[in-house]
Design a protein around this nucleic acid. Structure first.
Lengths: 343, 343
DNA sequence: CTGAAAGCGCTAACAA
DNA sequence: TTGTTAGCGCTTTCAG
């Protein structure tokens, strides 16, 4: 892999070195490396093989990328890799692209459009072949330019109304409907949904809240606006206290995401509330401990792997030009109800 | 960003286009982009600025990488991104490198040396500037060559005896000692440790089991070999059944990792065992639900962020040649006991 | 203060 | 069947 020169001078082995050693030209070596054996004599092939092994030659993909205008690398920008949703989706994307010899550069925007912009620019400068992103909602102009250029792009989890981009989302309406239907069947009457901050227009939160209301109507249940809330991180505990101290508190709560579920469970524990007798609980997003918690937690699961795989496949087709770039299909995935004992 | 040619021909804007438009040479544009303004007249600077904006020029990092032999990209190979440990470490690495304008390509080896090898080769071919890896234990020759070449490399979580590589690990001995000490103080006498398969020589598992025995000796507690086990994934439940059906079952169990903890809690739930009265539980690795579980789970936490940051910093110094490449310091991080109610 | 020219390592016509 | 040649887009001496 390295050629020793003089005492300690090192130099990377290049294709030229291989060519020289094998007594052929660079282009022949290039042919060899790209498996174009069609017109190559067994002899030269062997000579090249030996030369490569003896020198420990390893191709320089960067040079190849420059020439071919393709890096076999994609970029993925998620909000925060610490969220289960992100990791599972990432795993699926990873697995898919690795099958095709591609790699992924992973970035966290932390929901900050400024960070997002920096990543977008660097990733494009690094010539990634495509991008899968959970968009913050900012940087419309940058995305629009990408769309105009037909740059392969797929959004996940969120919709940006102004942009025509194919997007992968949960069918959030179905999630809310399933929850309400299940709760009604179980005999609960005063239902609520609690999720993270509604500021910032995060699609899944907005959609779940909105369609929760719609579902209540549809199932002829009363709508208590107090029970339909997006809380800031630090207000959950005292707001829950208020909520459950009401003369007519909610009988059942839908946690709009795993974070909200944790907060609810924290409150339940601190106040020795019995689930489901005193408060029924159901949540969107599976959590690792749904099974082992007592009582088992009824959850509405997102098919995260399928969603990640689908995003990857769509991007792949765009990269390979097998797919029209400028569609904006919203792919909705059905959530799945897993009934346990919390409602 | 694109120049329209004829009817629909598109062409990426290059430095040459900017140079032409601004009436300067490519090298001047290059100077500009690299902030070498020292000897540049205000005029040319402005002209270049305008030309860049009007053309929507974006530098091609690949070309730059080829010339400079540095990609500002590192590779990270973890066993499985779905593990909490991996995500947290990854986050820390990400954050650190982004501060320095670097990006990370993330790969999952799934503990498979063959996959690991493929990744190593591709990442090197893509000319990453350094590598952080949780090694499978295979591919010794490849790593040895990297070491010989002084390629920036840091290991995490596992030691490969045969290789001189700087490594970041938990002080596993301390973890076992803390557990045994705490359990003894709480009055438990018959102690056990359960962890994942001991085949495959995975450092943390081996070390935790080994030092658990040592700790028992040190604290004058009896050693029951039956209670010191590495189970395969599918045998936990029936082995636990055997274990807890013994005339003298363990009074307390240390879960060697989060996976083992889940299995224990599953068993506990299925058999209505009361923690800590019938069985005390403590675990290495924090889990998200330690607080909200009833009873709260006493855990021995790894400082994952610090570990990730340290790995990143070490790699950074090696990349920047501020650090000797060929040391093999094992950095041990102290775990932290968080007492809750499960023992 | 700016430009000319060589070259990073590889690919791909086109020749031979 | 193999070699020659001309770049890919950028950086970097070295001249001017």
């Amino acid at each position: 892999m390295l050629i020793r020169k003089g005492l300690s001078e090192m130099k990377r082995v290049t294709m030229a070195d291989v060519a020289e050693k094998a007594n052929v030209s660079k282009s022949t070596v290039s042919q060899y490396l790209n498996n174009r054996f069609d017109y190559m004599s067994k002899q030269t092939r062997d000579r090249i093989k030996i030369a490569i092994e003896e020198l420990g030659y390893q191709p320089n993909f960067v040079a190849r990328s420059l020439k071919q205008k393709s890096t076999s690398t994609i970029g993925v920008i998620v909000a925060n890799i610490l969220h289960t949703f992100s990791t599972q989706v990432l795993r699926a994307i990873e697995d898919y692209f690795n099958e095709h010899g591609f790699h992924a550069i992973v970035c966290n925007s932390y929901n900050d459009p400024v960070k997002e912009l920096r990543y977008l620019e660097m990733l494009r400068a690094k010539q990634v072949d495509g991008l899968i992103v959970v968009p913050t909602g900012g940087n419309l102009d940058v995305y629009q330019r990408m769309i105009d250029e037909q740059f392969p792009l797929v959004f996940m989890d969120r919709i940006v109304e102004e942009l025509r981009v194919d997007s992968i989302l949960l069918d959030n309406e179905a999630a809310s409907f399933i929850a309400v239907q299940h709760l009604k069947e179980k005999g609960y009457y005063r239902l609520g949904i609690l999720t993270s901050s509604l500021k910032g227009n995060i699609t899944p939160r907005i959609e779940r809240v909105k369609s929760f209301r719609k579902a209540l109507q549809m199932f002829n249940l009363p709508i208590y606006e107090d029970f339909i809330q997006g809380y800031e991180q630090n207000e959950y505990q005292f707001r829950l206290k208020e909520l459950l101290s009401l003369p007519q508190p909610p009988e059942a709560l839908l946690a709009g995401n795993d974070f909200s579920l944790m907060e609810i469970l924290q409150f339940v524990k601190d106040h020795r509330i019995v689930i489901p007798e005193q408060l029924a609980v159901i949540s969107v997003d599976e959590v690792s401990f749904a099974d082992i918690y007592s009582p088992g937690l009824t959850t509405i699961n997102q098919p995260t792997f399928e969603m990640g795989t689908q995003a990857a496949e769509m991007l792949w087709k765009k990269i390979k030009k097998e797919h029209n770039q400028s569609t904006n299909i919203i792919h909705r995935f059905k959530p799945e109800l897993v009934v346990r004992d919390s409602c």
